[in-house]
């Protein structure tokens, strides 16, 4: 008798028949077709697979399915329907913070996790907040600027 895994995904209750030892990353991409969750390294080094797990930033490549029973998972697909996302998206556009785009879903969620805890971060705090998210187009400065703009123009959202 092998139980299904139940969790909330982008606000909807879902179940998965996957083994408990499988990666959340693979389930999100393959079963739920949430391909905004990127696979970069499968060892927690790049942050491209970042999701919000019970409200905190997590690398979905390092989360085994059995551990998320009853949990809430938000991916970029779910987050993109929020006002906070819009504020971040507008700010990223203003500073041209997106180049190839591969790191961006994880990067945006890292920014959300940061702003949710600290609505007025300093430069150093922003860099720390996104320190687990690698951008190989070297766009960090533009991203840091974008977070500051989002914090300012999205005042009250966080």
């Amino acid at each position: 008798m092998n139980g299904q895994i139940h969790f909330t995904l982008n606000g909807e209750k879902v179940t998965s028949d996957r083994h408990a030892n499988e990666r959340l990353l693979d389930v999100l991409r393959e079963d739920f077709k949430l391909t905004g969750v990127k696979c970069g390294c499968k060892e927690g080094e790049c942050g491209a697979c970042s999701v919000l797990l019970n409200g905190v930033l997590a690398n979905s490549c390092m989360v085994a399915m059995g551990s998320i029973e009853g949990s809430e998972v938000v991916t970029i697909e779910g987050y993109s329907k929020t006002k906070r996302f819009q504020a971040l998206s507008d700010a990223y556009a203003q500073t041209s913070a997106v180049q190839c785009g591969f790191c961006i879903p994880g990067m945006v969620l890292a920014c959300e996790a940061l702003l949710a805890k600290n609505p007025n971060p300093t430069d150093a705090e922003i860099r720390k907040g996104i320190s687990g998210n690698l951008c190989r187009c070297t766009g960090y400065n533009a991203i840091v600027e974008a977070v500051k703009i989002a914090a300012r123009e999205g005042k009250g959202l966080w």
């Binding site: 408990a20 030892n21 499988e22 399915m65 059995g66």
Partner: peptide, 10 residues
């Protein structure tokens, strides 16, 4: 306790 394939949650 929940029994999954390849895992136990307690």
């Amino acid at each position: 306790m929940v029994t999954f394939s390849n895992g136990y949650l307690v």
